[in-house]
Design a protein around this nucleic acid. Structure first.
Lengths: 357, 357
DNA sequence: TTGTACGCGTTATCAA
DNA sequence: TTGATAACGCGTACAA
């Protein structure tokens, strides 16, 4: 009773190369060749095939193709939180590269949860993505998931929140360099007495930004008295309190400019300055970090260091595609300089330009 | 010379069920059954298989599985612009549903370009996604792409920017109802003389919001004198000019409250009110639309209608998953009420609550 | 230029 | 409970 029955009356069945072949009177191979624009197909035959394909609404099955070619043209992306404003921008940067290179994106979000991230990685691997871009969840403490995936030959690139030293390429922002840039900008505009509102030094960005600030000052042989590095933490109130301490100094020993560890701290500091009856930037100039949405909306718009999210995604995707296509990058760490967004609070002429690289 | 040679020395080869089977001394079928937790496998056998699988780092090939099962557990998402703040939120809402239902997301962005959107749809179809969620690009003028996909049996759900009447489920915000809600809120707080700053009536949201405003007024038998509907367009300057016209009326004929077609128009209007030496909301109350980021940062924070992006994505994804799993929704249009975000500009007590549904 | 056989890794089906 | 076989739809390798 067993027999070939390729003509099942299944109306919901997708149209395959077989159908196009039958309709055109050629073999499936010729259909395949015509669809993929291989050279060795007679022009007339190709046209016939393509016409029939369009008429039948044939679309080549990428699943089958991926199975035989062992390549899905798909990249997995794992982000901790889609709505974090940094990540949509980064994804946009990723998308730009992958679109041009003919890859698609499977987007997963870990919701900052280590287990969910772990599951995402496993599934992406099972889906046989050609590579994975990942920004780690905060709760992750164990590298082994990444190491194992790498061990199985899955191309992996970290971006923004990276894991060094396990053989994966990392793309992130150079916080130290950014702090140095901001400080240099202030120095370049004649400020000499510059203070820093610092974050917690056990957090990497807190440390890096303080270091960058000091480096810039050292480079110009400018001294930083101990009372010019005040702990503020990452929030408004800390910035306010820290600034009050600086303002409590006798006028001639006060700073003329301030580098805040981030924008919220800067906002708090600005409030303290204005409350004290001083003007920004005339009496005290100030700069922050992160380009918080409020930065441009403040009464005195805040000069700040803007994380180049788009660029981070772009570079990470570029690196991954290169790895996939057999051109691994030289360095395993790619750091990006951030953008300095010049506004009124730093006292340079706005007409000089809105942004600088 | 042709012979079975399954033992090629290809070290880069992925480990397959075959490998696990060989190592365990069972057949691939048993491996398959054990991995998928089918009931009919001896407990000891299953354990043996699972152990071997873990040891070998075996991960089932979803590509092959998809091919035979004709199901990818993948949903395609097409958005016009990833960074538009509305969309990350919507995607987050989509992700919530798909994560729970075991689907993955292929994210594509059309960059508001009809051709790019078209390509994305074709490729998603070729990738054999189980369904597609789409918010159309602005430049799209031709429905046929969607109709054809639907004709081929691809489950399609539109969200936010929808296309009615071609047999696809649509999920969007009810602008008319939202305008009515905002107006009702003002009426409920005792305002009677309410004006509307309107958008262009050839644009659907301009029309819908005007209609909703009128409906609410009609419902309460409140008259709307012709001079109380002033064209403002969608931007600040239009709102400013429109408000100036209202303020040019003799004081007793002026409105006590204003419903603006969107937030920028409201900002312009607020500027005009303050310039005229009047207070918000004491002399004139005002409400807007869209929950622009500036709305909460204004000197007088603006009460506004907030598009529930998360909810739109959530509902659209839910509808699509239902369709995929054989439970098509009754209605082909699902409209969502927007959230009213109450702030100082409308004159109700903020202590009543920040948000209302 | 075109066609035939085979394999990609999995699951459904049926037999043992 | 387990195994052998035949798909799923395509591309590679070879033959015609």
């Amino acid at each position: 009773m067993k027999q070939k029955q390729s003509r099942q009356p299944d109306p919901a069945r997708r149209v395959t190369a077989q159908d196009v072949a039958k309709k055109t009177g050629v073999s499936v191979m010729t259909v395949s060749r015509a669809m993929n624009n291989r050279g060795n197909v007679d022009a007339a035959t190709r046209k016939k095939v393509l016409d029939a394909a369009r008429k039948l609404g044939y679309s080549p099955d990428h699943v089958a193709r991926s199975l035989v070619l062992r390549k899905t043209h798909t990249i997995g992306v794992v982000v901790p939180e889609i709505t974090h404003s940094f990540f949509p921008e980064a994804i946009r940067g990723i998308e730009e590269v992958t679109y041009r290179s003919g890859y698609h994106l499977i987007l997963t979000h870990s919701a900052e949860d280590a287990k969910r991230e772990h599951d995402a990685l496993r599934t992406l691997e099972s889906k046989r993505v050609d590579g994975i871009l990942i920004s780690t969840a905060q709760s992750v403490t164990d590298d082994s998931v990444y190491r194992e995936a790498i061990g199985r030959g899955v191309p992996l690139v970290f971006f923004d929140r990276v894991v060094r030293g396990i053989g994966a390429t990392c793309v992130s922002i150079d916080d130290k360099e950014s702090a140095r840039m901001l400080t240099n900008h202030l120095i370049g505009h004649g400020y000499r007495r510059i203070a820093h509102l610092s974050g917690p030094t056990r957090v990497s960005i807190g440390r890096a930004r303080l270091e960058g600030f000091r480096n810039a000052m050292d480079d110009h042989q400018l001294s930083v008295p101990p009372e010019f590095v005040v702990y503020s933490g990452f929030h408004e109130t800390g910035g306010y309190k820290a600034m009050r301490m600086l303002l409590a100094l006798p006028p001639e020993r006060r700073p003329r400019a301030v580098v805040a560890v981030n924008d919220p701290a800067a906002f708090g500091a600005m409030m303290a300055i204005l409350e004290a009856g001083l003007r920004i930037p005339d009496d005290i100039a100030i700069g922050g970090f992160s380009d918080d949405i409020r930065a441009s909306l403040m009464p005195i718009p805040l000069t700040t260091v803007c994380q180049p999210a788009y660029e981070v995604g772009n570079q990470a995707a570029q690196a991954l595609v290169n790895i996939i296509e057999g051109n691994p990058p030289q360095r395993d760490l790619i750091t990006l300089g951030a953008d300095l967004v010049l506004r009124r609070s730093c006292g340079c002429q706005p007409s000089e330009g809105i942004r600088r690289g």
